[in-house]
Amino acid sequence: YKELDVHLRRMESGFGFRILGGDEPGQPILIGAVIAMGSADRDGRLHPGDELVYVDGIPVAGKTHRYVIDLMHHAARNGQVNLTVRRK
């Protein structure tokens, strides 16, 4: 696995990616679609299928989808987010 730290600034449309997973206990949280011309797309480092490991330094492995969405909403209010993702 390769770990990447990604800092994104929120645009009008948000951070520019969707979150998948976390529906079953222990299921990984994954990056879903990366939205064209969004913040994540312009940054270029997030890829669909990347596993989300940390959101603003908070571990999200094994957490629920709702928990991660709530963290992302909090980050959106701050206008930026630091993510750590893991890729095979």
Score class of each variant (00 low, 15 high):
residue 59 P to D: 12
residue 55 V to T: 01
residue 84 T to M: 08
residue 21 G to P: 08
residue 4 L to I: 15
residue 35 I to E: 15
residue 22 G to A: 08
residue 65 H to N: 15
residue 59 P to N: 14
residue 65 H to C: 10
residue 17 F to W: 02
residue 33 A to D: 15
residue 34 V to R: 03
residue 61 A to P: 05
residue 28 P to Q: 07
residue 85 V to H: 03
residue 23 D to C: 11
residue 2 K to S: 08
residue 63 K to P: 00
residue 71 L to H: 05
residue 27 Q to K: 11
residue 52 L to S: 01
residue 15 F to W: 08
residue 37 M to L: 11
residue 33 A to V: 06
residue 7 H to D: 11
residue 62 G to W: 04
residue 59 P to G: 11
residue 80 Q to G: 09
residue 12 E to C: 08
residue 59 P to T: 10
residue 31 I to M: 03
residue 12 E to V: 07
residue 84 T to P: 02
residue 10 R to A: 15
residue 41 D to E: 12
residue 19 I to V: 09
residue 64 T to Q: 09
residue 68 V to N: 03
residue 25 P to Y: 08
residue 42 R to L: 14
residue 44 G to I: 03
residue 75 A to G: 05
residue 67 Y to D: 13
residue 83 L to M: 09
residue 3 E to Y: 15
residue 18 R to F: 05
residue 9 R to L: 11
residue 11 M to Q: 15
residue 68 V to F: 05
residue 54 Y to K: 15
residue 14 G to W: 01
residue 69 I to Q: 14
residue 16 G to F: 02
residue 21 G to E: 07
residue 28 P to K: 12
residue 50 D to T: 01
residue 38 G to T: 05
residue 2 K to Q: 09
residue 18 R to H: 15
residue 77 R to T: 12
residue 25 P to N: 06
residue 33 A to K: 15
residue 54 Y to I: 14
residue 24 E to N: 11
residue 77 R to A: 13
residue 26 G to Q: 07
residue 7 H to V: 11
residue 78 N to I: 13
residue 66 R to M: 11
residue 37 M to N: 15
residue 85 V to Y: 02
residue 43 D to L: 03
residue 56 D to V: 00
residue 39 S to M: 05
residue 77 R to W: 08
residue 71 L to I: 10
residue 52 L to V: 10
residue 24 E to R: 12
residue 16 G to I: 01
residue 21 G to C: 08
residue 82 N to P: 00
residue 22 G to Y: 05
residue 61 A to T: 12
residue 12 E to Y: 06
residue 33 A to S: 15
residue 67 Y to T: 10
residue 11 M to Y: 14
residue 40 A to G: 05
residue 49 G to W: 04
residue 45 R to T: 10
residue 86 R to K: 06
residue 6 V to S: 00
residue 59 P to L: 14
residue 38 G to V: 00
residue 13 S to G: 15
residue 49 G to L: 05
residue 50 D to G: 02
residue 7 H to E: 15
residue 17 F to I: 15
residue 13 S to W: 05
residue 53 V to G: 02
residue 2 K to L: 09
residue 88 K to N: 11
residue 16 G to E: 02
residue 85 V to D: 02
residue 29 I to R: 03
residue 73 H to G: 14
residue 46 L to K: 03
residue 64 T to V: 08
residue 46 L to G: 00
residue 17 F to T: 00
residue 70 D to T: 11
residue 46 L to R: 00
residue 69 I to H: 12
residue 26 G to W: 06
residue 13 S to A: 11
residue 63 K to D: 02
residue 51 E to I: 07
residue 29 I to P: 07
residue 27 Q to S: 13
residue 18 R to L: 06
residue 60 V to F: 00
residue 8 L to A: 03
residue 88 K to H: 05
residue 39 S to Q: 06
residue 65 H to R: 15
residue 69 I to W: 09
residue 3 E to A: 06
residue 65 H to D: 08
residue 11 M to I: 10
residue 41 D to R: 05
residue 75 A to F: 03
residue 5 D to F: 13
residue 71 L to C: 07
residue 34 V to Y: 02
residue 28 P to L: 04
residue 50 D to F: 02
residue 56 D to F: 01
residue 64 T to P: 10
residue 14 G to Y: 01
residue 75 A to W: 04
residue 15 F to M: 02
residue 76 A to V: 11
residue 5 D to H: 15
residue 35 I to M: 12
residue 74 H to C: 14
residue 10 R to Q: 11
residue 29 I to N: 06
residue 62 G to D: 09
residue 52 L to Q: 02
residue 7 H to N: 12
residue 69 I to N: 15
residue 82 N to A: 10
residue 87 R to T: 05
residue 68 V to A: 09
residue 13 S to M: 07
residue 3 E to T: 11
residue 40 A to N: 05
residue 43 D to S: 08
residue 52 L to F: 03
residue 65 H to A: 12
residue 28 P to I: 03
residue 37 M to C: 13
residue 66 R to H: 11
residue 40 A to H: 04
residue 18 R to E: 15
residue 66 R to P: 12
residue 20 L to V: 15
residue 52 L to Y: 01
residue 30 L to T: 15
residue 78 N to H: 11
residue 38 G to N: 05
residue 34 V to L: 14
residue 54 Y to G: 13
residue 24 E to I: 12
residue 67 Y to C: 10
residue 18 R to K: 14
residue 31 I to C: 04
residue 44 G to F: 04
residue 16 G to R: 01
residue 57 G to P: 00
residue 38 G to W: 01
residue 10 R to W: 13
residue 56 D to N: 07
residue 46 L to T: 00
residue 22 G to P: 12
residue 76 A to M: 12
residue 79 G to E: 08
residue 15 F to K: 03
residue 32 G to A: 11
residue 26 G to T: 06
residue 27 Q to I: 09
residue 57 G to W: 05
residue 67 Y to F: 12
residue 36 A to H: 12
residue 3 E to R: 07
residue 55 V to G: 01
residue 81 V to G: 02
residue 32 G to V: 05
residue 67 Y to E: 12
residue 13 S to N: 15
residue 34 V to G: 04
residue 10 R to F: 08
residue 23 D to K: 12
residue 68 V to W: 03
residue 54 Y to D: 09
residue 17 F to H: 01
residue 10 R to N: 10
residue 7 H to T: 14
residue 44 G to L: 04
residue 25 P to R: 07
residue 27 Q to Y: 07
residue 71 L to K: 08
residue 55 V to E: 01
residue 27 Q to H: 11
residue 15 F to V: 00
residue 85 V to N: 02
residue 84 T to E: 04
residue 28 P to S: 07
residue 52 L to E: 03
residue 19 I to N: 01
residue 73 H to P: 00
residue 77 R to S: 12
residue 66 R to Q: 13
residue 39 S to Y: 03
residue 84 T to K: 15
residue 76 A to S: 11
residue 63 K to A: 11
residue 40 A to Y: 03
residue 44 G to M: 05
residue 75 A to M: 04
residue 65 H to G: 09
residue 68 V to Q: 01
residue 15 F to Q: 03
residue 38 G to L: 02
residue 62 G to P: 01
residue 71 L to Y: 08
residue 7 H to F: 15
residue 66 R to F: 07
residue 1 Y to A: 05
residue 20 L to T: 15
residue 23 D to M: 11
residue 45 R to E: 06
residue 9 R to G: 07
residue 18 R to Q: 14
residue 44 G to P: 04
residue 68 V to E: 00
residue 22 G to L: 03
residue 50 D to E: 02
residue 18 R to T: 15
residue 75 A to K: 06
residue 58 I to P: 00
residue 72 M to E: 02
residue 12 E to M: 06
residue 4 L to F: 15
residue 47 H to S: 12
residue 75 A to L: 03
residue 28 P to N: 05
residue 12 E to A: 12
residue 33 A to I: 03
residue 51 E to Y: 03
residue 88 K to D: 14
residue 58 I to Q: 13
residue 11 M to H: 14
residue 68 V to Y: 03
residue 32 G to T: 10
residue 59 P to A: 14
residue 41 D to V: 04
residue 11 M to A: 14
residue 10 R to M: 09
residue 67 Y to M: 11
residue 84 T to L: 07
residue 32 G to H: 09
residue 54 Y to T: 14
residue 79 G to V: 02
residue 56 D to H: 01
residue 85 V to I: 13
residue 35 I to N: 13
residue 58 I to A: 10
residue 75 A to H: 05
residue 88 K to L: 12
residue 39 S to E: 06
residue 84 T to D: 03
residue 43 D to H: 04
residue 39 S to I: 04
residue 44 G to T: 05
residue 62 G to A: 06
residue 3 E to V: 13
residue 7 H to W: 10
residue 19 I to Y: 01
residue 51 E to W: 04
residue 26 G to C: 06
residue 71 L to T: 04
residue 27 Q to R: 10
residue 2 K to N: 10
residue 83 L to I: 13
residue 24 E to W: 09
residue 43 D to P: 03
residue 41 D to C: 08
residue 26 G to P: 04
residue 34 V to H: 04
residue 68 V to P: 00
residue 7 H to I: 08
residue 19 I to G: 01
residue 48 P to A: 12
residue 22 G to E: 07
residue 43 D to V: 04
residue 58 I to M: 12
residue 50 D to H: 00
residue 41 D to T: 04
residue 29 I to C: 09
residue 61 A to F: 14
residue 71 L to V: 07
residue 76 A to P: 03
residue 21 G to M: 08
residue 47 H to Q: 13
residue 23 D to G: 10
residue 59 P to E: 12
residue 55 V to R: 00
residue 48 P to W: 05
residue 69 I to G: 10
residue 62 G to T: 05
residue 29 I to Q: 04
residue 35 I to A: 14
residue 46 L to S: 01
residue 53 V to C: 11
residue 52 L to P: 01
residue 4 L to R: 02
